[in-house]
Design a protein around this nucleic acid. Sequence first.
DNA 1: GGGTGGGACAATC
DNA 2: TTCCAGATTGTCCCACCC
Length: 653
Amino acid sequence: MDDGESSSTNNSSRPWESYNTVFTNAKAGMEGVDKEKVQRIVYEMSKGSKYFQNEERKEALMKQKIEHMRDRCAKLSSSDLTNYQKVVDRRILELEATRDLSKIWLHVDMDAFYAAVETLSNPSLKGKPMAVGGLSMISTANYEARKFGVRAAMPGFIARKLCPDLIFVPVDFTKYTHYSDLTRKVFGNYDPNFIAGSLDEAYLDITEVCRERGLSGGEIADELRASVHSETGLTCSAGVAANRLLAKVCSDINKPNGQFVLQNDRSTVMTFISSLPIRKIGGIGKVTEHILKDALGIKTCEEMVLKGSLLYALFTQSSADFFLSVGLGLGKTDTPQARSRKSISSERTFAATGEERLLYSKLAEIAEMLSHDMIKEGLTARTLTLKLKTATFEIRSRAVSLQRYTCSSEDILKHATKLLKAELPVSIRLIGLRMSQFNEEIRNSDPSQETITKFIVQKDSSMQNLDDHDSVDLDGLSHDESLISFGSHDTSYAQLKDVVENEEQSEIEAEKLIPNQECEKREERPQALRGDALLIKHKECKPDTAVSLLPQMEPLFWVDGYKCNLCGIELPPSFVEERQEHSDFHLAQRLQNEESRSSSSTTPSSKRRILGKEKRNSKAKKQKSDEKDVSKHIPIHTFFTKSNQNSNETQRK
DNA sequence: GGGTGGGACAATC
DNA sequence: TTCCAGATTGTCCCACCC
């Protein structure tokens, strides 16, 4: 939808015109596309579906937000605007002071990457319209397919309608990773600290290499692209500019197999940015574009500066700052420290169902996948988030923070089951699980300790079965067996239900016995300390030799002088520290299990149910009040509008 | 009253 | 015939604690 005034009611003869789809947005290779035809087909294929209804619901909400913003805009007095303009003027000076034109950044973007890789391995696809993905969703399309309006993130069945001869090729990440590695080897020759955006794009600081070799940014880009082509047989496009934001915009200009250089001087940058549509900026998507366009009439980056006072009046400071810096053509010029991931997740879509057994079975599969990924990455975490997409495409998420770090599929499943249970009955089409709040001690451990870390992480998962009564009782089955049996046998489902229900009872009882605060305090201590505490608590424990970790636990000793009797890990006697750590690990493990037994490992579910209810109630109340004050209901990505004008003014003072 | 962490959810690629 | 992904991040609100 290009016009905020249009709606499905005043376009009855051409209803598709108001259907807000991303599939008609400008994308490389789609210049000659009959947008109206694409939009009509997408509309015809979608209308009436649950997906469509949900889109309409979201659209209505967005319109409401836009209306509200317009209202607030209209209410601003001239003195308000004068004051906000002063803020803008000051911020412009501050932002200008940070402008750095000394760097040369290069953004490389592979052309239709997945599709190009598939064509390399199957040359018969050359020249034919092809998409990587399936009928439900396609990941990318080659340029022949794009001529028909087919593009990434489009459902395959719609793509086939647009292009009946479209060839579908299944996604093969192993292949793409291989080619991505080849490109990265080339990138590394120009900037060893390059930033990989994704498999198919990267940012390189080529300031040094330009200086050393006396070449311009454009010449380096030329050489790099030729090098990527000779190493991989793939083409890429590049953008060269003073910062990453601009370089990314530039790499899209002469796509495919081209490049664009933006000179590093202020006036060239300002001219370039002045007419640039806001949607070209990374971070401004469909929603933000609509809000800025329809509520404030901002279509180009230049207008972000011209209407800066409105932005500061209506958005939060951080959002307004971002918009203003975009309008000034500013972007990041430093090479950030390697960003560490903050969460890890796994989700799957399936035919919508409300059948509990099926849902629990899916949950078990996803918990297993997530656990597997965590072990592979050497991560343990303590916040679990369950994501659900209902049959009506409504997204729900429910989270719980655990008292200990874990990566075990049993732990994940146990808590995820509780979260899911609270949502039932509901018909669901997607389940996702996410773990966040990583244990930094394990992640940042000395590489020389990698073996032991890996061991801890792996065993943290597998050991749960052995001695954690709190975990789902798997009757001594191995991981794989447990998964299979869970997914396919009624008994496993019944077991899980029982475990969850019994546990709730024990949690309620435990809550009576142990004050929650005490558990939290203990949780704050690092694991090693907790082990020490246990040693103090149980003075009969003696390190190494035959260590009795707890009176009721089998003592630890080294079989044949090198093999742990509890888990089988092999550590020669010379590995003194590792052995100590290892016995600490068993101690900590044991203590955690003890804690789990004697107290709730999460918020007691009885309490949680009440809390949940209160929360839902307060949420319902909130929604009601939001109907009155829509500004509280505009959580649009980074660009949150101010929830409260007064609070913002206070902030500014 | 300010700081902080948990939880929900929207946004992007 | 088929009927809209998956992964990750950022920001807000709110409850709780000091």
